[in-house]
Simulated scan of single mutants.
Amino acid sequence: MSVGVVFDSAGTLLKTNRAVKNIKSGILLNDSPETTMLTFEDPDRILILLNVSSTEMMKVPPEKNLSEHLKETDVVFGISCGRKIIDAADVGTILFSDPVCRVIDLQEVIRACWQIVSKEAESFAMNSGVIINLRTREIEFTLAAAGYPFPGVKEMISALHQKGVAVYIASGDRTSKLELIADKIGIPRDRIHGVATPVTKARIITSLKGEYDVVVMVGDGINDLSAMRAADVSILTVQQKGERPDVLCKQAGYIIDDIRDVVPIIDKLNADVE
């Protein structure tokens, strides 16, 4: 039996710390709030990843308007998730014209993330972005996320490869960051799908079902729900602490609290077929 396994990244393969700043209230949350859940709370919110260097962003004058800086540098952005289908041009219009959000609003979340994760790991992947609101036409939140592999991830991937299992990553994270992670844990770069929205993840699963007898989706958040529904087998990992909606838990065929438990589940699937 041929098996393909698709993993989400942040919160699934990577222990992830997040920081979010509410632009209107000025409140900074650095206790790793779930950004996809925050996005899905309002149907008009869209989570946007920014292809920027965190190090270089910290050198920009803090009081400068963020939209002005992003427009001047012609930043590349990706639509990570949201409850509505939106045209990239419309996202760009909002992203490059917001009059309120400042560079310091992004610097604060980057700094908060770095201060926590740098104490836990020598190397980690950092992403930053914003949540825009289609209704108000503004940047509502800035955010940053930094993560490093959970214990045993590399060994788990190796064990799957030894069993002949094809391993993929489909994640809302930037492709360049995912490729660095893939190199570290042993997943071929041509099996990486970055800036994957929930709809895109489901399409990837559906496409892979034409190549493998069984396709498994492993994720940890609401943005993985559509892919789980499309998969032959769905695994929800709760190793990253946080609340999960009931609909996600009910959809999961398996719920695990250690990513290494994926291996015995695959063994069981093979045994059931035999």
Rank of each mutant, 00 (worst) to 15 (best):
C81N: 13
L50R: 06
D74P: 08
V60E: 13
V76G: 04
E56D: 13
L70D: 08
K84N: 04
V52W: 02
T55F: 12
V75G: 04
E63G: 10
V60Y: 02
T55Y: 14
D74E: 14
E56S: 10
L66T: 02
F77S: 01
N51W: 02
S54R: 11
L66P: 08
E56P: 01
P62D: 01
E68T: 02
S80Y: 09
E63T: 00
S67F: 06
S67V: 07
M58D: 07
S54C: 11
E68P: 01
I85H: 02
V52T: 11
H69F: 13
G82T: 01
S54Q: 09
E72H: 03
N65P: 03
D74N: 14
L70I: 04
K59M: 14
T55D: 15
K59T: 15
T73R: 14
C81L: 04
M57Q: 02
P61L: 05
K59G: 06
V60D: 11
K84Y: 05
S67H: 02
N51A: 15
N65T: 03
T73E: 10
I85A: 12
I79C: 03
G82F: 04
I85Y: 08
S80H: 09
P61S: 05
G82E: 08
G82R: 07
T73C: 09
P61R: 09
F77A: 00
I85F: 04
L66Y: 10
F77R: 04
P61H: 09
K59Y: 00
F77I: 05
V60M: 01
V76Q: 08
E63L: 11
T55L: 14
N51T: 12
V75I: 13
P61W: 00
L66G: 04
M57C: 00
E63I: 01
T55I: 12
L50D: 00
S53E: 00
L70G: 05
I79S: 03
V75M: 09
V75F: 06
L66C: 03
M58K: 13
G78L: 05
L66V: 06
P62R: 07
V52I: 12
E68D: 09
C81R: 04
C81G: 08
I85M: 03
E72G: 02
